[in-house]
Computed example of a mutant assay.
Amino acid sequence: MSLLTILDETASGSVLHRLELEINQETLTVGELITRRVHDEVAAYNERQSGSFQGLVQPTESERVLNGYRLRPGHHIDAEQQVYRALEAFQQNRFFVLVNDRQAESLDEQVWLGEGATASFVKLTPLVGG
Rank of each mutant, 00 (worst) to 15 (best):
R85V: 04
Y45A: 03
E63H: 07
S12P: 03
E105S: 13
G130T: 05
S106E: 05
L21M: 15
R102H: 12
A43L: 09
D78Q: 08
H76C: 14
R72Q: 06
I23C: 07
L16P: 03
E105W: 07
G114C: 12
V83F: 04
A11F: 09
G129P: 00
R72E: 03
N100S: 09
S62P: 05
Y69F: 11
V65G: 11
L28A: 10
V42Q: 02
T27F: 11
V99Q: 02
F95E: 08
L56C: 04
L107F: 10
V42T: 00
T118D: 09
H75E: 15
E47L: 04
R36T: 08
Y45D: 00
G68K: 00
V30L: 09
L16W: 11
H76T: 11
L124I: 13
S50Y: 11
R85C: 11
A11R: 13
R64N: 14
Q81E: 12
E61D: 14
E61K: 15
F53E: 04
V30Y: 07
T10W: 01
N46A: 03
V30Q: 03
T29A: 08
V122R: 09
L19N: 02
A104Y: 00
A79G: 06
R94Q: 10
V42M: 06
V65A: 13
H76A: 12
T35C: 05
G31C: 15
G31P: 03
S120L: 03
L98K: 04
A79R: 00
E41D: 08
T125L: 15
V57N: 01
E22T: 15
W112E: 12
Y45E: 00
S14Q: 15
Q58Y: 01
Q92C: 13
V83S: 08
G31F: 09
V122A: 03
V99D: 02
Y45T: 03
L19Y: 01
Q103H: 01
Q110E: 15
D8E: 05
L33G: 03
Q54R: 12
F53S: 01
F53T: 03
E32Y: 06
V30F: 08
S14M: 15
E80K: 11
G74L: 06
E63N: 12
E109Y: 04
D101I: 04
R94Y: 01
Y69C: 12
L7Q: 02
Q91G: 11
G74W: 02
S120M: 09
S50L: 14
W112F: 00
Q103W: 00
K123S: 00
V99F: 10
P59R: 00
G130A: 13
Y84H: 12
Q92I: 10
G129M: 04
L124E: 11
D8Q: 07
E20I: 09
G129K: 01
Y84T: 10
R70N: 02
L127R: 13
A117G: 05
E109S: 11
N24P: 05
I6Q: 04
L4F: 09
